[in-house]
């Protein structure tokens, strides 16, 4: 079945959103409308409509005038096996000894890796982003340094990929938390899929704000892949709950923000041991000194 797309670009997000709203009233009506940031540094936004019937090009031309957008490009979308297309894009990710894959790639898991089955779904942490990849590489580096952990916390766990990676190496119970209920549900499903629900416990909490997390402290290793602001706010709790000699792996930090985060943690005696830079993102491996 042939369907149609009509795509244009605009310089501002607010303009793009207003145009998308206006497109909802087109006849024939679109079955879907998307607003996307174009990730080429141009700052442009793309607005695309999906149509079962060929869109009215006159009406589209009118919209381009009203919203000062570029002329719509109307194309036919040929029938495609979109599931196969997506599966090709969602390829496995290898970070040191860790191999993160979706169930569609279960037959591609090499023998000499630590496998982690994660579907790209409704929680962050598929391994395809520089922050998650950086954390896995940081963990791989720590293991290579001969570090061993018994108590581990993963704050802002998303899919729980980091908690599971650590639990694959050190099979003591890892505590994971996320502020988002959906992420906790996804994490629990991932733990079951990886047969790790006995090794990782996941709770809904903001930071360490849960009795289970506080009671299990101090930790040998704390992961926090969140963002600069929450990481800085979390510094006093990390200092409080990390044992002396323990490590914190922090990510979600843009390269230009890394110095600020380092400085805040250094004031608590938690200093840089190593870092991983992947694209725009820095992962810090910090150690709490005596």
């Amino acid at each position: 079945m042939i369907t149609y797309t009509a795509i244009t670009t605009l310089p501002r997000k607010s303009q793009a959103e207003a145009l998308a709203e206006a497109m909802e009233r087109l006849v024939p009506e679109p079955t879907g409308i998307g607003v996307f940031e174009i990730e080429d540094g141009s700052g442009l936004w793309e607005v695309g409509g999906y149509f079962v019937d060929k869109p009215d090009e006159g009406a589209l031309a009118l919209l381009t005038t009203v919203f000062d957008a570029k002329e719509f490009v109307v194309s036919e979308v040929p029938e495609t096996d979109w599931v196969a297309h997506v599966r090709r894009e969602l390829s496995p990710v290898q970070a040191g000894r860790f191999f993160v894959y979706g169930s569609h790639d279960a037959d591609k898991v090499p023998d000499d890796v630590v496998p982690l089955l994660i579907e790209a779904a409704m929680a962050f942490g598929t391994g395809h982003h520089g922050t998650t990849l950086g954390c896995l590489k940081a963990l791989d580096w720590l293991i290579g340094e001969g570090f061993s952990a018994q108590k581990i916390a993963d704050i802002g766990c998303g899919t729980a990929v980091l908690a599971m990676a650590a639990a694959r190496i050190w099979p003591e119970t890892v505590l994971a938390s996320d502020i988002d209920r959906v992420a906790v549900d996804v994490a629990v499903a991932n733990l079951r899929a990886n047969k790790m629900d006995g090794n990782v416990a996941c709770v809904e909490a903001a930071g360490f704000d849960h009795d289970d997390l506080r009671d299990a402290a101090p930790y040998d290793l704390i992961f926090a892949n969140i963002l600069k602001g929450p990481l800085i706010a979390l510094a006093p709790d990390v200092e409080k709950h990390l044992r002396t000699g323990g490590y914190a792996i922090l990510s979600g930090i843009l390269n230009e923000q890394a110095a600020d985060v380092r400085a805040v943690y250094a004031r608590s005696g938690i200093n840089l041991a190593h870092s991983e830079v992947i694209g725009d993102w820095t992962t810090l491996i910090l150690r709490k000194m005596a």
Partner: peptide, 16 residues
């Protein structure tokens, strides 16, 4: 359509 092409062109996991 619209789920397949809209999500597929963005590389989002359609089946999930």
């Amino acid at each position: 359509p619209p789920v397949g092409p809209a999500l597929g062109q963005r590389g989002i996991n359609i089946m999930e």
